[in-house]
Amino acid sequence: MKQMHFTVHGKVQGVWFRAWTQDLAKELGLTGWVRNTSDGNVEGLALGEDTQLAKFKERLHDGPPLARVTQVDSAESEAEDIIDSFNVRP
């Protein structure tokens, strides 16, 4: 199992991005978390298999209808923790 830490830049706060990300992760069978950052971005950690993570990253570039994603940064590594669900963090 792999993990992907990601940061999404653009108009991604106040547009339901975290809830959309949680729904997407559940649809793809991923676990992890997502949260807003103080600089206006969205950050998260997703755990799953390579193919699931690739689909997830691809879809992060789209976001929900009101979002305007300008950039997605990500880094993959071997999973360090076991997380049993995908949660929205405050």
Rank of each mutant, 00 (worst) to 15 (best):
I82L: 10
V69I: 10
Q13I: 09
S77I: 09
S85Y: 10
F56L: 03
F6E: 00
G14C: 04
T51F: 15
K26V: 12
F6T: 04
G10T: 09
D81S: 12
K55Q: 13
E76L: 13
V8A: 03
S74A: 15
T31A: 00
K2E: 13
E80F: 08
A19C: 09
L66W: 15
L66G: 07
I82R: 11
A75P: 11
T21N: 02
F86I: 03
F17Q: 04
S85V: 07
T31F: 00
L66T: 07
A67T: 13
S74M: 12
T70F: 14
A75M: 13
E49K: 12
T7Q: 04
K11N: 10
V88I: 12
V88L: 04
D81A: 12
A46W: 03
K11T: 12
G29T: 00
D23E: 13
V15E: 04
D62R: 13
T21W: 05
D84H: 08
Q71L: 12
V42A: 04
G48F: 01
L47M: 11
V88A: 01
S38C: 05
F56R: 03
D81I: 11
G29F: 01
D39A: 12
G32F: 02
D23T: 07
V34A: 00
V88S: 02
D73W: 08
L66A: 13
E27F: 01
V72T: 11
L45G: 07
Q52N: 06
Q3R: 08
H9Q: 07
R18D: 03
L45P: 06
M1E: 09
R89N: 15
D84A: 07
K2M: 08
Q52W: 03
R18V: 05
L53D: 04
V12I: 08
G63E: 11
F17A: 05
N87R: 15
T21K: 01
S38R: 10
